[in-house]
């Protein structure tokens, strides 16, 4: 997952990078998109039968799979009446020529933490509904995402995958667990009846790259390699900002507000696209 590493760029990538700059200067993009257009989005949910919620997302050639799982756990002492939510992700060695197996790189850790913040800070999952016995027993929710093919903009694709898995997923009914706690086999919730995951928000992350002083959304892998700056902004369903991460480079003061406005528009657009693809009504 090391990017911007000259030594690791292949000849193909260098030629591509030169072309990208040439095209952007002419107000075009290599794949024919407008600067503020996303690539085609495809979502399939329920793809992992053993998970409580799952999704496979294709954003152009970027492929993410997300799985949601549950375990019994004890709540954190400072929040006895809340369940536990953990979002983590990895870029698999299948993802690109520069992805490597082994301990996560700093870029991977950053991606993982930005996706986690997008979900956590939006309070998408109502963690108070994951409680079995306050202070004693709660559901612990694991959201894991993996990048199988990296053609850029991993964070946006991962957040789309996570929200799709959560909106269509289920969880063990905490009421049932409470009543049958003694009878349940340890750490096995498979026999527990399921209810929908209690969601109360719909966060969308939008990544914007600056190339030749122009802003583009949904950058590809090659576009990321030549970008001067890159920033991810997550909006809640109420159009509040709930996470920002300047991933690379710097922005002028006025440019900060420019990207905020672009990302707000795009968040609304992508949220509607997901609703359509998942067959959910607007709210």
């Amino acid at each position: 997952m090391k990017k911007n590493n000259f030594k690791k760029k292949t000849l193909k990538e260098i030629l591509m990078a030169n072309n990208i700059l040439k095209f952007i200067k002419e107000n075009r993009r290599l794949d024919g998109r407008g600067f503020l257009d996303y690539r085609d989005l495809r979502i399939e949910t329920g793809v992992i039968k053993k998970a409580y919620g799952s999704a496979r997302v294709e954003l152009g050639d970027t492929i993410v799979i997300v799985g949601v799982q549950f375990e019994l756990g004890t709540p954190f002492p400072d929040s006895p009446d809340k369940g536990i939510l953990l979002t983590e992700g990895e870029v698999l060695p299948t993802a690109s020529f520069s992805a490597e197996a082994g301990p996560p790189s700093e870029e991977e850790i950053e991606i993982s933490r930005v996706v986690d913040r997008s979900i956590r800070e939006s309070e998408m999952v109502d963690l108070s509904k994951l409680v079995i016995k306050p202070g004693e027993s709660v559901l612990k929710m694991f959201i894991d995402f993996n990048i199988f093919n990296d053609d850029g903009n991993i964070i946006d694709a991962a957040v789309i995958g996570v929200v799709s898995a959560l909106l269509t997923g289920e969880m063990p009914d905490p009421e049932y667990v409470k009543e049958h706690l003694e009878e349940l086999p340890p750490n096995n919730l498979t026999s527990v009846p399921r209810i929908p995951i209690p969601t109360q928000d719909f966060p969308i992350a939008n990544t914007i790259a600056l190339i030749d002083n122009k802003f583009i959304v949904d950058p590809t892998f090659a576009e990321e390699m030549v970008s001067e700056a890159r920033i991810t902004i997550t909006h809640t369903v109420n159009n509040e900002i709930c996470a920002i991460q300047l991933i690379q480079g710097g922005l002028g003061y006025e440019q900060v507000f420019e990207v905020l406005n672009i990302s707000l528009d795009k968040s609304i657009e992508i949220r509607n696209r997901i609703r359509e693809l998942l067959g959910l009504g607007g709210d």
Partner: peptide, 29 residues
């Protein structure tokens, strides 16, 4: 970078409206 007027680290978590962000950003500057 105060003389070049560039933001080089920018993170946020929690919830802010765009108006609140502007106020917070100006205050941090």
């Amino acid at each position: 970078m105060p003389n070049l007027r560039k933001v080089v680290l920018l993170q946020m978590d929690g919830k802010l409206t765009h108006e609140e962000f502007k106020e917070a950003f100006d205050l941090a500057l």
